[in-house]
């Protein structure tokens, strides 16, 4: 079975071997990591963590806008690793996840993917 190593930076760099095709939330909870979650289908953002290093595939998530993706957030209930990764988990990782939308508006390219306008380069 193809596995990757997940390092959790805000849990003393604890490491876990996880299956390549299993969502990270499921793999990590099964190994005793205490993670927040809600909908479990990629829609509600409760389980969001921050990717510090490595890559994941998360095409099933529909919760994150492009700014949140740019800031490294991953929806752990649907994201699967495609390399060894380092994650920051829980609300400690949510420093850039929430913003006051009246004070800090999104640019057109920072909206969710289905309504974003591509940034002109």
């Amino acid at each position: 079975m193809n596995t990757y190593t997940v390092t959790i930076s805000n849990r003393d760099n604890a490491t876990y071997k996880v299956a390549a095709h299993r969502p990270l939330l499921s793999s990590l909870c099964a190994q005793g990591v205490d993670l927040p979650y809600g909908c479990k289908y990629g829609g509600c953002i409760t389980c969001a963590g921050k990717l510090i290093a490595g890559n994941v595939e998360q095409h099933r998530q529909v919760a994150l806008n492009n700014r949140q993706l740019e800031n490294g957030y991953v929806i752990l209930c649907v994201a699967v690793p495609i390399s060894d990764i380092t994650l920051e988990i829980g609300v400690e990782s949510h420093d850039k996840l929430y913003r006051n939308p009246f004070l800090d508006p999104l640019e057109p390219h920072e909206l969710k993917a289905n309504i974003a306008t591509p940034k002109e380069i």
Partner: peptide, 18 residues
Amino acid sequence: APNTFMPGFDLEEVGHLK
């Protein structure tokens, strides 16, 4: 839609009729 309001309030989505 739940997928719109559950993750938080993106004010811009009002203009996109979400």
